[in-house]
Design a protein around this nucleic acid. Structure first.
Lengths: 111, 111
DNA sequence: TGAGCTACCTCGCCTGTCAAGGTATTTTCG
DNA sequence: CGAAAATACCTTGACAGGCGAGGTAGCTCA
């Protein structure tokens, strides 16, 4: 089963930040890793991905720099900032909380 | 901690359908029950709620009728349809799947 | 009387997703 | 060698859902 876009909406930034916690990386690779980790059930569309990078950088959550693969470097690397790490910590807590709430509301678990 | 709107986006319909599985109800009451169940961490804004009712009814997931609290009945009751029940079953499965995927992506569990 | 609650509803803005389209380099394979 | 596919980046405009703001109306209680 694949997961609809609206369900993932709002988790995009957290997913990217979490991936960057494993080290600097560039767009294409980040997306592939996310797809693999999700077992193919989910992957960002490119437009979504680059929109998110832009937003994250504007908000100071990540910084970027061009790779030095020689002339014609075509990879823009991203690194998580301190603010990004704090944001991720908050996002993780929110996700944990969200699971509890939605289990109660959608699965009718516990009262 | 409260949960941001974008995180809940896309779960609105499932939450309402799940609530209607416990019996017919009307907007105001549905919303109060949801808030209680969520421990106050979450509640629909009215505009969101009525937009969702409209969408769900147009899609055949629910039907509505005016209550008979005497003259000037001011409550519109909603009932889940067979299609709505099927949709809810699918939504529940999707939510279960979503939890696995997001645990892997955000919390870096397994994988 | 009037404050506050119940109960419904609409309009228009905002934000995130993404289809579509574009550019440029490198690799692979016949 | 030539072509196709993959890598790698990016923008624009449309669309959908959430919701702030605003509106109507009845009931209750001090």
């Amino acid at each position: 089963m694949s997961i609809s876009a609206d369900i993932l909406r709002g988790h995009t930034d957290a997913i990217i930040l979490a991936q960057l916690m494993t080290g600097d990386s560039y767009g294409y690779e980040i997306n592939k890793r996310i797809s693999q980790r999700a077992g193919g059930a989910y992957g960002f569309k490119e437009a979504t991905l680059y929109t998110a990078f832009k937003r994250l950088e504007q908000n100071g959550m990540i910084t970027s720099y061009w790779g030095d693969e020689g002339p014609g470097a075509r990879r823009r690397y991203y690194a998580i900032t301190q603010a990004g790490m704090r944001q991720l910590a908050a996002d993780r807590q929110e996700w944990t909380e969200t699971k509890k709430v939605l289990d109660a509301l959608i699965l009718q678990k516990e009262g």
